[in-house]
């Protein structure tokens, strides 16, 4: 979609009708009270004709909004289909992180990837959810999830260990696809 500039004509002077102010206020009140009465009695057409109600509010913990794929929640580690995390502990994300919230202790492994993270902690209290770690990761091993409920009562519990971070790959397919599509343009 092309981005255009919309020019809004602003009237320099108000007409006399607008300057009396009372009729315009009455018009405003008419609009808002229309909404009020429609919503107050809104359950009647809702029941009779099965109409959709105009109210946009969601009952949050029970109902949730589906976020778009581009949405960045807390970063998580991808657990491959074979039950091993994809991360090779290269340390790029640790270097890249502007908030210095990632710390990795690498270790050696007999697997073909040879290196693996012995410890991988993200201090979610410091994380600014920028997504640089995801962008820099050569293995698609760290992805931004849709999880935003990170509130907690103490700071110890918000320091996520490796066990807290691992998420099976099949839950992250959508984000994986989005990342591939988005970063393909830059031809890494």
């Amino acid at each position: 979609m092309a981005i255009g500039i919309l020019k809004i004509k602003r009237k320099g002077k108000m007409t006399f009708w607008e300057r009396i102010y009372i009729p315009e206020i009455l018009r405003g009140i008419a609009i808002t009270s229309c909404h009020f009465f429609i919503n107050l009695l809104g359950f009647i057409p809702h029941i009779l004709f099965n109409n959709e109600r105009k109210i946009f509010t969601l009952y949050y913990p029970e109902e949730r909004v589906k976020y778009p794929d581009a949405y960045r929640g807390r970063p998580v580690l991808v657990l491959g289909d074979n039950g091993v995390e994809k991360c090779v502990a290269c340390g790029l994300c640790e270097k890249m992180c502007p908030a210095l919230c990632i710390s990795i202790q690498p270790g050696e492994t007999k697997l073909s990837k040879e290196r693996y993270p012995e410890g991988f902690t993200i201090d979610q209290a410091r994380c600014i959810v920028c997504g640089f770690c995801e962008e820099v990761c050569p293995k698609e091993a760290i992805l931004m999830s849709q999880d935003i409920e990170i509130a907690n009562y103490n700071r110890k519990e918000i320091l996520y260990k490796k066990e807290d971070l691992l998420v099976p790959e099949k839950d992250l397919r959508m984000r994986q696809g989005f990342v591939r599509g988005a970063f393909a343009r830059w031809k890494y």
């Binding site: 808002t32 009270s33 909404h35 009020f36 919503n39 107050l40 105009k54 109210i55 946009f56 509010t57």
Partner: peptide, 9 residues
């Protein structure tokens, strides 16, 4: 009332 006027709950 403010909620109903603004299409909220």
């Amino acid at each position: 009332q403010s909620a109903l006027m603004q299409d909220r709950i």
